[in-house]
Amino acid sequence: MSHHLVIRVIAKLLIPFILLFGLYVQFHGDFGPGGGFQAGVIFAVAFVLYALVYGLDNARRIIPDRYIRAGIALGVLIFAGTGVVAMFLGGNYLDYSVLAHDPPHGQHLGIFVVEFGVGLTVASVMVAIFFAFAGRGHKIDEKEG
């Protein structure tokens, strides 16, 4: 798709807003519709769009495979780690009430951290899956290049 000028320019304009919207959905999920699952997908869509328009190799250069794989593992680790931290602070596993001075704040903090973990894993997995499919056979690039 590299010769489609309009698509390239529009994609370049859109991607920052998609990323910003992803962050908004992630961190505003406590108050409005949104949360880790949705934000992860929206975040991944920005990278998928970039890879579709500018080619897979450029996208790989921006976000190398090892970061994606680290992100997949790190998200699960943040989620499970929050539970372990709660256990060390004297609560049950995944009981966020002990994370701050009073239970509601602790719950809020815990939910926030856990949603971040979810978002990280979902975004990384979606990007990884897309790269895996697109990297197979390279027919996508040929058709659109």
Partner: peptide, 8 residues
């Protein structure tokens, strides 16, 4: 919500 993402 969780089922959709697991579904994909």
């Amino acid at each position: 919500l969780t089922a959709i993402v697991v579904g994909v």
